[in-house]
């Protein structure tokens, strides 16, 4: 052994770090940096949003007032107050109602597309869902404003059509394609062996779906629902245009409300950089970022649980 090793070095045997090796390693490093950029951007978002909002959070913000006062009066000259309770309530009301509308329909649609529909029908439905997902949020907002608003006024005989109901309907339609396609993916991820086993036992299609496939896909479905919540929660333009944008603790679905996201969108343009108001908006941004981060993390962990189990 050793005498052979002595006689031939790796170099002589043809081991040279040639041009191709260098190119490979160089590009690997470059692409690693590109991949790593995703981490940098997430950290960057956190750092920059936090940086602008930090001074407010550290020195000027009264936690009790911020979270528990419904009075958002940043522009008051004598006594500006920064309470986001009403905004949280607005966002929560819209998100909750929109999910209550969206989830049953999109999960049902996912079951239909994934398990009942076949061939061309399925193909066309998937394309339709995909096209729905592509409609920009500002267009949805305009629809809320121009089409839903008069429709709600006429149907329910209320003075204002820009309210929780309007924005929830819009958000439900916006989130539906996303939840549907994620849920359908979750159903598709159930191994065919399960289906075959259920069929071999003589189960009908519905029994198979209800007793086998849905339980097997439940983590994926839950994660799809959570991502739908995240989407509704973070939506900005549609909510800004369809919710009425007035500060209110909502008591019915016909109340106009204001959402956290919409507040930033409506006010950031009018605040001087570095002012208390500007910083308070960034503080809301921090809050939004943390909540969506938690939602996404939870959705991811739930799906990962599926893969491990």
């Amino acid at each position: 052994m050793s005498d052979i090793t002595a006689a031939t070095t790796a170099e002589a045997a043809g081991d040279r770090l040639d041009k191709n090796w260098m190119i490979d390693k160089g590009l690997q490093a470059l692409m690693f940096i590109c991949g790593f950029s995703a981490i940098i951007f997430v950290l960057g978002i956190f750092i920059f949003v936090f940086k602008e909002g930090a001074e407010f959070v550290a020195h000027k913000m009264d936690f009790a007032e911020f979270f528990f006062s419904p009075k958002w009066r940043p522009t008051s000259l004598s006594n500006p107050t920064y309470g986001i309770l009403a905004l949280i309530a607005g966002t929560a009301a819209i998100t909750a109602l929109s999910m209550a509308i969206c989830l049953p329909f999109s999960l049902g649609a996912a079951v239909f597309i994934g398990e009942f529909a076949k061939g061309k029908t399925r193909e066309y439905l998937k394309i339709l869902i995909e096209l729905l997902a592509a409609i920009p949020s500002v267009v949805w907002g305009f629809i809320g404003l121009a089409i839903m608003n008069p429709f709600i006024i006429k149907t329910f005989d209320v003075p204002i059509g820009l309210n929780v109901l309007n924005s929830s309907l819009i958000l439900a339609l916006m989130a539906a394609p996303i939840v549907t396609s994620l849920a359908e993916d979750a159903l598709k991820a159930v191994p065919d062996a399960y289906r075959e086993a259920a069929e071999a036992l003589g189960a009908t299609r519905w029994q198979m779906i209800y007793k086998v496939i849905i339980p097997a896909a439940k983590n994926g479905l839950l994660s799809a629902a959570l991502l739908g919540v995240g989407r509704a929660f973070g939506e900005t333009m549609a909510v800004l245009m369809a919710s009425g944008h007035s500060i209110n603790m909502p008591t019915s679905m016909f109340d106009s409300v204001r959402a956290l996201t919409a507040t930033i969108a409506a006010e950031l343009g009018e605040t001087p950089v570095g002012s208390d108001h500007y910083q308070a908006l960034f503080a809301i941004g921090i809050f939004l970022f943390i909540i969506t981060f938690v939602i996404n993390l939870a959705a991811d962990l739930i799906v990962r649980g599926v893969r491990k189990g």
């Binding site: 052979i4 090793t5 790796a10 045997a13 043809g14 770090l17 040639d18 090796w21």
Partner: peptide
Amino acid sequence: GVNIRDWRNVYA
């Protein structure tokens, strides 16, 4: 005559 693990350039 060379341990394959000592090849720095596995592609070669």
